[in-house]
């Protein structure tokens, strides 16, 4: 891994994507014949803005709604409430016909590189599919040329065009996935844990490739991950999710240097430091217990059942999102005192 990225100068620009109070509730059939469905609140009121050329990291433990959030933004899962404004226009609940042309700017990269490629298609066909769908006016030869150019760009040998996904390694498959997402030169890519299934040396290559592509095409990325060191490397801003709620949203530097929310503190204190002296002596906040069921989330602050600083107020009042500095927002009643 080479240089740390610097945040683009985003305050001058309008956000490319703004999400307001986004909710995704899945109905879970109640027990008994006539019982009512109960909502499972996978994502429960998330707000954020994303600026052109920016990478937003979404972190949180398993089951906190990271992937659901990513899919809800792309309208792959219909949100149950709230707004997703793409270039200033709300796209929640708009008809299929109107969503179709927007899809060329919104793409996704998946966690399992092999599962995201159709095993019966050649990689040439896989990478060409978005082109064939959105730009059918291009001839066969033009499509093939573009596919080859994109393959070379993501580090695949263009003469592999007729091969099948099972003939490639995990890292190569992820490059194919990136090529498919990039072929239409989209404006936003949701990366759903794109490197979790790869080994560490390959992780670095894929992350660096994403960064190169971001600079080249002025891409915005939503980078979903639970690996805090990778998030630190690639993201400009970081959003911490817990049980479908935003705990903290801040600049990379603020959040790593000065986490405000107890949950963020615990997460960051768990990242190993490659120096045995510091690692041995550092103070670690260990969380006890498991993530509560999103079917019956705790009252008030959802994190209170595992928070070492929880007080009575936490059980009664839902914390509002406080802006602690220009670049940092936190949802905790006592972020000043702890």
């Amino acid at each position: 891994m080479t240089v740390m990225t610097t945040a683009p100068d985003k305050r001058d620009n309008a956000p490319i994507l703004s999400v307001r109070d986004l909710k995704v509730h899945f109905p879970i059939p109640g027990k008994g014949l006539f019982a009512k469905d109960r909502p499972l609140k996978a994502v429960d009121g998330v707000d954020f803005d994303l600026y052109p050329g920016e990478t937003l990291g979404v972190v949180g433990e398993s089951g906190c709604g990271k992937s659901t959030l990513g899919r809800a933004i792309l309208q792959l899962i219909a949100p149950s409430g709230g707004q997703v404004a793409w270039l200033g226009k709300n796209i929640v609940g708009i008809p299929h016909r109107d969503m179709q042309p927007l899809r060329r700017d919104l793409q996704i990269i998946f966690q399992d590189p092999l599962a995201s490629l159709n095993p019966r298609m050649t990689i040439g066909e896989i990478i060409a599919e978005p082109l064939v769908t959105h730009k059918p006016e291009l001839g066969k030869d033009e499509i093939k040329t573009r596919v080859k150019r994109m393959m070379a760009r993501v580090g695949l040998l263009p003469q592999m065009i007729n091969r099948y996904p099972h003939e490639f390694s995990g890292g190569q498959c992820q490059r194919i996935g990136i090529a498919r997402a990039m072929i239409l030169e989209p404006k936003l890519i949701v990366c759903d844990e794109p490197v979790s299934a790869l080994d560490v040396s390959i992780q670095a290559q894929i992350v660096n490739l994403l960064q190169e592509l971001q600079r080249e095409f002025d891409l915005s990325l939503i980078f979903i991950s639970h690996d805090l060191s990778i998030v630190r490397h690639i993201c400009h801003r970081i959003m911490v999710l817990y049980l479908g709620n935003v705990m903290e949203l801040a600049d990379r530097d603020s959040i790593y240097a000065n986490p405000k929310h107890p949950y963020t503190k615990a997460l960051i204190s768990a990242v190993p430091i490659p120096d045995p002296e510091i690692e041995r002596n550092k103070e670690r906040i260990v969380l006890t217990g498991d993530l509560p069921s999103p079917l019956s989330p705790p009252s008030g602050c959802v994190f209170r059942t595992r928070c070492p600083f929880a007080q009575e107020k936490c059980a009664t009042d839902v914390p509002t999102i406080d802006r602690v500095s220009e670049t940092q927002e936190v949802a905790c009643h006592f972020h000043n005192s702890i």
Binding site: F110, D112, A115
Partner: peptide, 22 residues
């Protein structure tokens, strides 16, 4: 629910084509 079907969705491939191609 496989990811390559989801990828086709995200690209905007029509349901008819997803059924016959994927």
């Amino acid at each position: 629910r496989r990811e390559f079907i989801e990828a086709a969705h995200a690209t905007g491939v029509s349901n008819f084509k997803i059924i016959f191609r994927h």
